[in-house]
């Protein structure tokens, strides 16, 4: 199948964050960046589909500054065949404007399947995939935890509060990937070498007007420091007392 995967470069989720001077962004010094977690699940899902049902082609797309090329290379070292960098230095918090750039690029690609992460770590918004689908006029299933595709059709499961929804849809389609579909592989040394020779095309992104912008960022209030109240089951009566009298949750 011809599969497109849209990926984002985000700070590593293990990072300890500080707010940058000016207060409208995070301090990037000392922060590691990597492929967004859910996007990496989407890359893995595409690779597995094409490995199980060859022939196929997996092409990765990213909107962002030049630094995002490193993320595209990583996807190719996992096994993607080629990459397209849609260059933009615009801030990336307006999902609709990013979706416009991706939709303009993907429109004439003839893809059977277009995959996204369910949401990006930094924006935590879950906008870009579904909005791109809408702009392309394609059916879209969001936040799927299980996915199966065969020529012309797919089925998926998504978790809704307290239940699982099982759906069927026709291809071409857009799917946004939740955890559970596939755990991403680590690039092999061979993959890393091969990726250096794979094609990476870079061109200007046609991002839409930016209407969502960061006014300020702040760290959430710290929790009070933790407290150990005792050892073993002997501490249970004290715990119950605190839950009743102090926390008032019992």
């Amino acid at each position: 199948m011809k599969i497109a995967v849209c990926i984002k470069r985000t700070p590593d989720s293990e990072s300890r964050f500080k707010i940058a001077a000016g207060g409208a962004g995070i301090d990037e010094s000392g922060v590691k960046f990597d492929m967004d977690d859910f996007a990496s699940y989407a890359v893995e899902a595409a690779l597995q589909i094409n490995e199980k049902q060859p022939p196929g082609e997996t092409i990765v797309f990213a909107v962002g500054p030049d630094a995002i090329q490193e993320t595209l290379r990583k996807a190719m070292s996992m096994g993607a065949d080629r990459a397209v960098h849609l260059k933009s230095d615009a801030p990336l918090f307006d999902g609709i404007s990013i979706a416009k750039a991706l939709a303009a690029e993907l429109k004439s690609g003839g893809f059977d399947l277009i995959l996204f992460g369910r949401h990006a770590f930094d924006s935590s918004a879950g906008v870009v995939g579904t909005a791109t689908a809408e702009m392309l006029g394609l059916p879209c299933v969001t936040a799927v935890s299980h996915l199966e595709v065969s020529p012309g059709k797919g089925s998926a499961r998504r978790e809704i509060e307290g239940a699982g929804e099982v759906v069927e849809f026709s291809l071409p389609a857009v799917v946004t990937i939740d955890e559970g579909v596939a755990r991403p592989r680590y690039p092999s040394l061979k993959g890393i070498m091969a990726a250096k020779k794979k094609p990476l095309e870079s061109k200007p992104a046609q991002v839409g007007p930016v209407r969502v912008s960061v006014k300020s960022m702040e760290l959430p209030a710290d929790r009070p420091p933790g407290r150990i109240i005792g050892q073993g089951s002997a501490a249970v009566p004290e715990l119950v007392r605190l839950l009743q009298t102090e926390a008032k949750v019992l």
């Binding site: 307006d94 609709i96 979706a99 918004a125 879950g126 906008v127 579904t130 978790e159 809704i160 969502v212």
Partner: peptide
């Protein structure tokens, strides 16, 4: 911003060409 609201928001915003503030 429930499971189905997350699904719906970007569809509606894209149809209206309106910006979306999530969650």
């Amino acid at each position: 911003f429930s499971a189905n609201g997350r699904d719906l928001g970007p569809r509606v915003a894209a149809k209206l060409d309106a910006p979306l503030g999530s969650d």
